[in-house]
């Protein structure tokens, strides 16, 4: 399958985002944050915790409109966006399959999802309720929901946080499997450099608050060649380019 959507990239240009606390104290979270993600690329937004990564994502998802600046989502194809949140955010009163189908537009509700459920190892769990799933399985269901919509752009907010290392690694491989079946412009927020190096085409490095782009790290290497040794080389050149960022 070829990348879907016209050539328009994801373009972000946020001039400023300020939070005002109840006591009247204002905190500037983002300042002059601008970057681009070319069509069909997987980018990671890497930065120290509390620097405004999730805030950026909430702005792009349209959940926070109190900011100055602009952004442009990739157009063409479905024009839909999909998100995998920090928590799986599955509706507890609907089964796994209902959760996935509800996110689909009406005309796609009946589409065949067997391949997607098979790839994610959820084939036997379609009729379970989220409370009956482990956290790892719930996260897989959240991935299934995001990919089922065939979005024009996919946002992931630390989707593998609070999982043990083995489960997280397994989920990363599954994510790559479904993503490569249909490469979608994707932006993933993470503070885990190893995760970013394993998944991304490019890493957008953010400064501490007020956050702006420190620089972009392009990983030229195809994912299948990123063995332990190659990853160490990548890590070394990353630290050369961004000393002090871990």
């Amino acid at each position: 399958m070829q990348p879907v959507g016209a050539a328009a990239p994801l373009r972000v240009d946020i001039a400023e985002k300020t939070f005002r606390s109840a006591q009247g104290v204002s905190v500037t979270a983002l300042k002059n944050l601008s970057f681009e993600v070319p069509n069909g690329e997987f980018a990671c937004l890497l930065g120290p915790s509390g620097c405004g990564k999730t805030t950026t994502l909430r702005i792009l998802l349209g959940l926070d409109r109190q900011f100055s600046g602009s952004f442009q989502l990739p157009e063409g194809g479905s024009n839909r966006i999909a998100a995998v949140f920090q928590e799986p955010t599955l509706l507890p009163w609907r089964t796994v399959e209902q959760n996935v189908r509800l996110a689909l537009p009406k005309e796609l509700r009946v589409k065949n999802l067997d391949a997607l459920f098979d790839t994610l190892g959820l084939a036997g769990m379609r009729s379970l309720y989220p409370a009956e799933l482990s956290l790892g399985l719930a996260r897989r269901a959240a991935l299934a929901r995001a990919f089922a919509t065939e979005p024009a752009v996919l946002f992931l907010d630390e989707p593998f946080v609070s999982l043990d290392g083995r489960t997280a690694g397994q989920l990363r491989r599954l994510l790559l499997d479904v993503w490569s079946a249909r490469p979608t412009t994707a932006l993933m927020v993470t503070h885990n450099l190893a995760e970013a190096l394993a998944l991304a085409d490019r890493i957008i490095v953010l400064s501490p608050r007020p956050s702006h782009v420190l620089g972009v790290f392009d990983i030229g290497l195809p994912r299948q060649h990123r063995g332990p040794e190659a990853t160490n080389d990548l890590l070394r050149s990353f630290h050369q380019k961004f000393p002090g960022v871990s």
């Binding site: 998802l61 349209g62 999909a82 949140f85 955010t89």
Partner: peptide
Amino acid sequence: PSYAEMAAVYRFGPLD
């Protein structure tokens, strides 16, 4: 609110 946000992102209709 997280369910409402999920519904907003995935463009649930008012009835849904």
